[in-house]
Design a binder for these strands. Structure first.
Lengths: 175, 175
DNA sequence: TACGAGTGAGACGCTCGCGTCTCAAATCAG
DNA sequence: CTGATTTGAGACGCGAGCGTCTCACTCGTA
């Protein structure tokens, strides 16, 4: 049920509680029993998305093996995530919620920066690419992938492939 | 004045009319004299942004010269635009407004697709990159660039550079 | 059958932001 | 200086969405 709410909230970021309840096939009352307030609902779903993000990166073990392969694993995992959580990134958040999410993902983001720097030092990645830009790309291309699917411009699979290809092309250095 | 409203609306997509008025340094009454409703305000600013987008692409003459140089011009122009209109892309729109914007930019988007295909046929661009993905990238990396600047992760100039570099790296084919 | 937990339907009050209006102050043109 | 236009300040009604509450219904379980 939280899943269907999340899905509809992603498609319609400004959806009202009645709307979300209808989308989940439950009554408004039940929705309020599960989530004490709209803010709590949004916060909880975004927390879950952040956790999924953290887990996906951890599972990809960005610190292990060659930077090239590590990047591939990371991007593959996040590509799969994009379809699920991508458009939640558009949710307008209260300041403290946004801060909490940033806090929650800080270590993970740092591990991604580390991966980029590691690849740059090993000579696999272009040195002129700012790790911050890589994070920005990852975040917003996930959103973009989800949005492309929403608009019917891309299939999930195609979006995932292109996301990975873009990251690879941007980072990889070729002599 | 419309400019300061747009700027603040971009930073705070859910800003209220009083908030926007304060940000523009005018009274609520005056804001309502200028924009008959909040919806009209959002629509007008997004229209303006769409026009700027169309103009930027036209000015870059995507159909002229070598695809590589044409892409460079396009990306340079849009990179400059990103700082101004980027975060407006996050604005929740009424359906018919979104449709109108898509209509308004359809021809321009088509000219960008044409550019991509032209480059692919000439052998300059990778053939496995979907033109739709290029549009998606452009859109969301512009948003990302603006957001990176907002979060203090990137400078405007750096964002612009990286945006261009990413598009180039993704599209260019190297033997 | 009887009981209890969970659900749906709907009424209710409340807050908040929208949009309108009025009037006084300020600005500007002649 | 005078009249006209614009602006700001604030009151006001309105509607929408939130969150609470009650009550009847429906299950699963004993």
């Amino acid at each position: 049920m939280a899943a269907s709410v999340a899905r509809h909230l992603a498609l319609a970021p400004a959806a009202s509680m009645p709307e979300l309840a209808a989308a989940a096939g439950i009554s408004r009352a039940t929705l309020f029993r599960r989530f004490p307030s709209r803010a709590a609902l949004v916060a909880e779903l975004c927390q879950a998305a952040a956790e999924a993000f953290v887990r996906a990166v951890q599972d990809a073990a960005p610190d292990d093996g060659s930077p090239v392969q590590a990047l591939e694993r990371v991007v593959e995992g996040l590509g799969r995530l994009a379809a699920v959580v991508g458009l939640l990134g558009l949710q307008p958040l209260q300041e403290h919620v946004e801060a909490a999410l940033l806090e929650q993902t800080a270590a993970t983001e740092e591990s991604l920066r580390r991966l980029v720097r590691r690849g740059q030092e090993s000579g696999d990645f272009r040195v002129e690419v700012d790790p911050e830009w890589v994070l920005t790309m990852l975040t917003w291309l996930m959103v973009g992938a989800a949005d492309g699917v929403r608009l019917g411009r891309l299939t999930t699979a195609a979006a995932q492939t292109h996301l990975a290809a873009t990251l690879t092309a941007t980072l990889h250095r070729r002599p």
